[in-house]
């Protein structure tokens, strides 16, 4: 459905994207993950026919984005990062206008249909200027799907929304993804993990990894980590003892009394560790299994850990704590509501 070969774009001397090659299959949700300025928006703009690449080709449904730009644009629905709306229009007028521009048959019926779909039908007569950010985002989504595009390109669809709205928009994207090919950019890792079938991690214009979220986790994990918090004197001694246990690959200190133990993948070492701690006269305050999150993987790949090792070791541990990111909170809220 989407086939991108050696795509490169420069803005003057600055290289925005560098030799990107990837593809997306029909009905797939592909995530672009990367820090701000990584080249996600540029890639999307090229795919939508907004700007031509400096070199390389991109094809959507067999049409080249430069040579057959109009054919591509007919087949693509696009929601840019700043939702493009006319504040002086009513929601329904706006959708009809966009629908007509995209040659939607039975445009009025279809406009109402997508409004129902995004849950905005009761605000059809409101001026867009009076809508909240979440509602605007939904109108933006409605605009992107009104002509039943084969490919939907969403640039940071949940940015700036409150947690409930984030959940709503994600649900919507998931549903839409059942029938459309979706490309979605985000810098929220939980979102990519939750929504995407496949993730491209982009940094400084290059693809640094491409796989399913699960496979990425597995590939980079290579072992499990157990976090323990203990109380007692001479923790160094305990550290040595623990690292002597069979199946333990290494022990590191996160902070005073908190240790990170790397163990072999398929051995259950927690009972042994617990016993070792207690038998040596320490108090065991906490023990848990830490899986590597996409966040850790991301940081590994992007290669920022080299700066201060101490800090980086701490951040994965913290990212495991429940509900520490707005996205996680949103997820929890969703499950409560659900």
């Amino acid at each position: 459905m989407i086939d991108v070969q050696n795509l490169t774009k420069t803005y003057g001397p600055r290289l925005a994207i560098d030799n990107l090659t990837f593809h997306a299959n029909k009905g797939e949700i592909l995530g672009f993950l990367g820090p701000n300025g990584a080249g996600k928006t540029t890639t999307m703009r090229i795919l939508t026919g907004y700007m031509p690449p400096t070199s390389g080709t991109a094809r959507i449904a067999g049409y080249d984005v430069v040579d057959d730009s109009l054919e591509v644009r007919k087949r693509v629905g696009y929601l840019p990062e700043t939702v493009p709306l006319y504040p002086d229009m009513t929601v329904i007028d706006y959708l009809i206008f966009m629908g007509k521009l995209r040659r939607t048959p039975n445009v009025e019926d279809r406009a109402w249909e997508v409004l129902e779909r995004v849950g905005m039908a009761e605000r059809a007569g409101s001026f867009i200027g009076s809508l909240s950010k979440g509602m605007r985002q939904r109108v933006g989504l409605a605009q992107a799907i009104i002509h039943k595009p084969e490919v939907l390109i969403l640039d940071e669809p949940t940015i700036g929304l409150d947690p409930t709205q984030v959940v709503e928009v994600r649900e919507l994207v998931k549903e839409i993804g059942k029938e459309h090919t979706v490309i979605l950019s985000t810098h929220i890792l939980a979102e990519a993990q939750q929504l995407c079938d496949r993730v491209l991690i982009i940094n400084q214009g290059k693809i640094v990894a491409e796989d399913t979220p699960q496979a990425l986790q597995l590939r980079l994990q290579g072992g499990r980590r157990i976090i323990v918090e203990v109380r007692g004197d001479k923790i160094d001694a305990l550290e040595k003892r623990l690292s002597g246990l069979p199946g333990v690959r290494g022990v590191g200190t996160i902070s005073q009394g908190r240790l990170e133990i790397l163990v072999e993948e398929n051995e259950e070492l927690r009972p042994l560790i617990a016993r070792t701690v207690l038998e040596n006269g320490y108090d065991l305050l906490e023990m848990r299994l830490a899986e590597m999150s996409l966040e850790d993987i991301f940081l590994q790949l992007v290669g920022e850990e080299s700066e201060t090792e101490q800090e980086q070791e701490e951040s994965p541990a913290e990212s495991e704590a429940p509900s520490n990111t707005p996205a996680d909170e949103a997820d929890e809220k969703a499950s409560e509501e659900g």
């Binding site: 026919g49 907004y50 109009l70 696009y78 493009p84 605009q143």
Partner: peptide, 14 residues
């Protein structure tokens, strides 16, 4: 200024 130009330029019109 609105960002809507992006929408018009990605719609199937010349």
């Amino acid at each position: 200024r609105n960002g809507t130009l992006e929408l018009l330029l990605t719609a199937p019109i010349r």
